[in-house]
């Protein structure tokens, strides 16, 4: 299996005045293409920061991130924007949909950033929304959707520009357990259907273990444990 993501000694330190706050203290890992990896840990363990670094929303203080053969730390801001657009898709705990736009429009906005031809956008957006089970909710705004539905819209938006890696930051954090199960199953199904790699950050280890190929545990900015599917934790 080819490695799609590789981090080496990744560090991130926030500076608040004269105080250094190290969040990641050297994280090295490899993720294979098509793998479903979960990063588990308590809040403050640095797992969201890790995802933001891989997603190109934030820049690392030290170490390397190589994704699909390209090194993120060497990218300028424009290349990072392209990385966010084409290589990764991000899903957040709070959905982060644009409230004034319908489900369809939230997805077509991502396609617009992706320079898709105008006339293809609606078709492609409704295709993806149908794939995540929202074929009948295209014209509803986030306010008219349930949490699970909103998160499906967010997933559809993340997939709009056909990324290699889906990065999900606590995607079930705002959902009840039944809806959470539906969402993680959807992520799993999407991975199974195509050549998508999924990296999910969560604090819910049992849930992570139930869907992931691998669960990594992060504590105080360091990887402390790794469990493969089928192994006992």
């Amino acid at each position: 299996m080819t490695t799609i993501l590789s981090t080496t000694d990744l560090t991130k330190t926030y500076y608040k005045g004269s105080i250094d706050i190290p969040v990641l203290r050297g994280v090295s890992l490899d993720v294979a293409e098509g793998e479903f990896v979960s990063v588990a840990g308590r809040s403050g363990s640095g797992k969201s920061t890790f995802l933001n670094l891989v997603g190109g929303l934030d820049t690392a203080t030290g170490g390397r991130i190589v994704i699909h053969g390209a090194e993120l730390s060497a990218m300028d801001r424009r290349e990072l924007a392209r990385h966010r657009r084409d290589t990764v898709g991000m899903v957040f705990q709070s959905f982060n949909l644009i409230q004034s736009r319908t489900a369809l429009e939230n997805v077509t906005l991502a396609l617009a950033f992706g320079d898709h031809p105008r006339r293809d956008r609606r078709r492609r957006a409704s295709e993806i929304l149908t794939r995540v089970g929202l074929g009948d909710r295209l014209d509803h705004t986030p306010g008219e959707l349930s949490g699970g539905e909103a998160q499906r819209v967010a997933i559809a938006r993340a997939l709009a520009n056909a990324p290699d890696v889906l990065l999900a930051d606590e995607p079930t954090g705002n959902l009840d357990s039944r809806t959470s199960d539906e969402i993680v199953s959807l992520l799993r199904r999407l991975r199974d259907d195509g050549d998508l790699t999924v990296i999910m950050v969560t604090h819910d280890e049992p849930m992570a273990a139930s869907v992931s190929d691998r669960v990594l545990r992060l504590l105080d900015g360091r990887l402390v444990e790794e469990t493969r599917a089928g192994e006992a934790p």
Binding site: G55, L57, R77, R78, A81, R82, R84, R85, D86, G89, M90, F92, N96, L97, I98, L109, A110, F113, G114, R157, A158, A160, N161
Partner: peptide, 16 residues
């Protein structure tokens, strides 16, 4: 601000 963040997260460049 949040919307700008969202647009950046889904691929909007600074130029956009």
């Amino acid at each position: 601000t949040r919307e700008i963040g969202i647009m950046k997260a889904i691929g909007g460049s600074e130029g956009d």
